[in-house]
Design a protein around this nucleic acid. Structure first.
Length: 835
RNA sequence: GGGCGAGUGGCGGAAUUGGUAGACGCGCCGGACUUAGGAUCCGGUACCGCAAGGUGUGAGGGUUCGAGUCCCUCCUCGCCCACCA
């Protein structure tokens, strides 16, 4: 090592060496315990930002630490290469998405290498390659066989300007965020995964994910939105048929004074001839609006009377049937019983249209309720039933049970469960995605339900295209404009047929990529089941919390499917999940070109080196917390590494000559040399424990303390002190490795290591050196701190008490008082309770 | 409206099971070395107070010998979901 800390030379030297030595290849220790460390694979945009840096660092520290502890670690990286941004860029810049994506990958990978990440690049994958996406198609076929894929007509967001389906996220105030045109609902065919078949399993599985942040599991619970209730038939008055409603509060049924159904054809059919024109008009108006416009919470409740009446099955009263915007066709049965006395929405609507309000509950305390005047007065909690026939006097819970049974016995309904979660529609009218392996043949399949492409014909490749002609952002899906792709032969009859021109949602790609890493070249299945048995589930997964209910739910679903297909051994893909916080700009705002507050990793690496960037980002705060970038703190991290460097450089010659502590009898270490050894060994213990808890900021703080302590010792004066210093620096280099691996390796080498400190392993601390023989005790009087005493570690209560009582300040505090009780906490404190 | 987090010095943040609040870093103040320093090293730094001492973890109560930590009420901020019956 040189006197000057020349980070760029040191970093490129070790990066090259790690790659050459295959330091981070997995499978090197087949008999050791495995550790699968994974970070969410990136969409390869042009440049890395600090969020990426932090994300990958959190996994990297963990991977390096466990590699040092002798685990067989797999830590792979790849590219989520399909997606809309590349296609939009292609439309704008007229460059094929594959070309642009490849450029980005090269750039991105270079930045990753420059940050010193410990990836096994032999496992690299790219989801846009046929070798990868053919297995998306394979899964599609398997899931089609199992009924987990189906074709449906569904209501989607259709942009009237772009002439395409867009995602909910792309709709802003009912308009398209790109072209600002109006977005409407459109019924169109699409392919969907029957994820709702797994709703209960996914929900139940959350209970076992003890090492996932509760924030994420609760969001998934919410998203799945399981609610238990009943479906009940409300017979139509004066004609055949009935309306089936869903309610979680059947205990309030005696207060149901009207029924509301979602605006749609059914409402029109129900309407009496006199009311029909108005109902028709209302339904048509609603159909023209987007979901948010029609039924967003901001939207005022509106509705019309159908003229028809239903009969409340419990009260036998005749109640009016309305149709209104606040009832959603897609949830429950698309119809509700309205109980204005005990439901806020029903109350507002009843107030507006003058519908009757009937109290059927009193408070659990027995207090009776008055008819509410305002929304705030509406009693919506469980209570005790009043004015409810045979059920009067029951609690809400009892009533729900009995009324449910009544409905079932009389064939008027049933207890049931409803979910908020919907099936996952994955058809996209895009080019840059996985083609859906389906063919339409007019002869074999006149209803156009789709004929699957046989497994042996996979992959259905994305065709080569003339970018400018095909990717226009207008008209039909791009693949419909490529005749060579579109026209094919029917797998059944061999006659002329056309291919499905839609592609898959890119969330399909990320459902199983973590398993593909295990055997990226495997060509008999998506991955090698033997490797899956060795490595799955993933031990730790790091990524942003924004994926809580998309990717993190989808891949839990997929994981279950893979198990059923006999590919994977586990239901759950990931044991421990870490969701990292956001790196904001120095001004506390989200980093953005708009604010001019973007700090790029490349600039920081160039100015301070990767080790400084790593140390700073990890030291800035706990992983899950957001933090604001701070240039001063970066300087601080850099200063720390310079101190480490100077210390190691300064002592290297003397320490090399002095040798190992093992060569010196333990009793020769006394005074300063013993203190040095204690400081170093305590640091090893502390840092290891902190890393396992993912408390990287305190791990680094612990290393800083050791460095400060070693500076305080100044120059070693005896051979023992030289030995102790040498040991301390070697231990320092070891514990610093996960954070600042380049500096650590350079120091390690100067202190006699033959290769990377990763190969040297994580050091064991000497248990005898991490316990003190004199301990500080806090002395309290009535719980207030009155003094601090130093006592031999093995001292018993009476010795500590005697020492405490002889302390001057304690004496003063105790004088003239009677000791009622003494609380003694070994190794911590003694508290005199006096009066 | 519902769910989940979080409130600790000037700032980022520490504090295994309730046990010396403020580790570590930044900033600031002082000193050393220097022609010089925005380099480096050493010291100080929660608040009030000259001091003795007192006060302090969003607010208010409670449990306890002892509460940042546990319980209750409330306030503020953030995120997610949201007319889901």
């Amino acid at each position: 090592m040189n006197e000057r800390y020349d980070f760029s030379t040191v970093e490129s030297k070790w990066q090259a060496r790690w790659e050459k030595d295959g330091l981070f290849r997995s499978g090197q220790r087949p008999t050791a315990p495995k550790k699968y460390v994974l970070e969410m694979l990136p969409y390869p945009s042009g440049k890395m930002h600090m969020g990426h840096v932090r994300n990958y660092l959190l996994g990297d520290v963990y991977a390096r630490y466990y590699a040092m502890r002798g685990h067989d670690v797999i830590h792979p990286m790849g590219w989520d290469a399909f997606g809309l941004p590349a296609e939009n860029a292609a439309i704008k810049e007229k460059v094929h998405p594959a070309v642009r994506t490849q450029e980005n990958i090269v750039f991105f990978k270079q930045e990753m290498i420059s940050l010193g990440y410990a990836y096994d690049w032999s496992k690299e994958i790219n989801t846009s390659e046929p070798g990868y996406y053919r297995w998306n198609q394979w899964f599609f076929l398997k899931m089609l066989e199992k009924g987990l894929v189906y074709r449906r007509f569904s209501r989607v967001n259709w942009c009237t300007g772009c002439l395409t389906v867009i995602a909910n996220e792309q709709v802003k105030d009912g308009n398209c965020e790109r072209c600002d045109s109006k977005v409407i609902d459109k019924e169109m065919p699409e392919w969907a995964f029957r994820i709702t078949r797994y709703s209960d399993a996914l929900l139940e599985g959350l209970d076992h994910l003890k090492q996932w942040p509760e924030r994420i599991t609760s969001m998934q619970r919410n998203w799945i939105g399981r609610s238990e209730g009943v479906e009940a038939e409300f017979p139509l008055d004066g004609r055949e048929g009935s309306i089936r409603i869903f309610s979680t509060r059947i205990d309030t049924v005696h207060g149901a004074t009207y029924v509301v159904i979602a605006p749609g054809d059914r409402a029109v059919q129900l309407a009496t001839p006199e009311e029909r024109p108005r109902v028709q008009e209302f339904v048509e108006e609603m159909a023209r609006l987007s979901k948010t416009e029609r039924a967003g919470e901001m939207t005022e409740k509106r509705g019309v009377f159908t003229g028809a009446h239903a009969v409340n099955p419990f009260t036998h009263q005749r109640i009016p049937i309305w149709t209104a915007n606040f009832v959603l066709a897609e949830y429950g049965t698309g119809a509700v019983m309205a109980v204005p006395a005990h439901d806020v929405r029903d109350f507002e609507f009843a107030k507006k249209y003058g519908l009757p309000i009937k109290i059927v509950l009193k408070r659990p305390t027995g207090e009776t309720l008055a008819v509410p005047e305002t929304v705030e007065q509406v009693f919506v909690d469980d209570g005790v039933l009043v004015d409810s026939g045979d059920y009067t006097g029951l609690s809400s819970a009892e009533a729900r049970a009995k009324e449910g049974v009544f409905l079932e016995l009389n064939g008027k309904g049933k207890r049931t469960v409803t979910y908020r979660q919907k099936d996952w529609g994955f058809s996209r009218q895009r080019y840059w995605g996985t083609p859906i392996p389906i063919v339409y043949c007019d002869r074999c399949d006149p209803k156009r339900e789709g004929t699957p492409v046989p497994e042996w014909d996979l992959p259905v490749r994305l065709p080569e295209i003339e970018t400018e002609q095909v990717l226009t952002g207008k008209g039909e899906p791009p693949l419909a404009k490529v005749p060579s792709f579109l026209h094919t032969t029917c797998p059944k009859c061999g006659g002329p047929a056309t291919r499905e021109v839609e592609t898959m949602d890119t969330f399909v790609d990320s459902c199983w990529y973590y398993a593909r890493y295990l055997s990226p070249q495997y060509d008999r299945a998506p991955f090698d089941p033997a490797e899956a048995r060795r490595w799955l589930p993933v031990d730790i997964y790091v990524g942003g919390p924004e994926h809580a209910v998309m990717h993190l739910l989808y891949f839990r679903f997929w994981s279950r499917v893979m198990k059923e297909l006999g590919l994977s051994p586990t239901d759950e893909p990931v044991t421990r999940l870490v969701t990292q916080g956001i790196v904001n700009g120095p001004d506390g705002r989200k980093m953005s070109k708009r604010w001019g507050n973007v700090v790029t990793p490349a600039v920081i690496v160039k100015r301070y080196g990767a080790d400084t960037a790593r140390t700073y980002v990890l030291f800035a705060g706990p992983p899950e917390r957001d933090f604001d970038w701070s240039d001063e703190q970066v300087e601080g991290a850099h200063r720390f590494l310079k101190r480490v460097w100077t210390l190691a450089y300064h002592h290297r010659a003397a320490c090399a000559a002095a040798g190992d502590p093992e060569t010196v009898p333990a009793e020769r270490f006394t005074g300063r040399s013993l203190e040095m050894r204690r400081a170093a060994h305590k640091c090893v213990k502390r840092v290891g424990e902190a890393i396992e808890r993912l408390s990287f900021n305190t791990a680094i703080a612990g290393i800083m303390e050791l460095v400060n302590a070693l500076y305080a010792f100044e120059a070693p004066k005896t051979p023992e002190e030289e030995v102790a210093m040498g040991e301390a620096v070697r231990l320092l280099a070891a514990v610093l490795t996960p954070f600042a691996p380049h500096v650590s390796d350079e120091i390690g080498e100067a202190y006699g290591a033959t290769g990377s400190t990763v190969r040297e392993g994580w050091p064991d601390y000497d248990p005898a050196l991490v316990v003190d023989d004199v301990l500080p005790y806090a002395v309290q009087v009535n719980g207030k701190l009155r003094g601090e005493i130093k006592v031999p570690a093995h001292a018993a209560e009476d010795e500590v008490r005697a020492a405490a009582e002889s302390d001057d300040k304690v004496k003063t505090a105790l004088s003239g008082k009677t000791v009622r009780k003494v609380v003694f906490v070994p190794k911590r404190l003694i508290n005199f309770v006096v009066s």
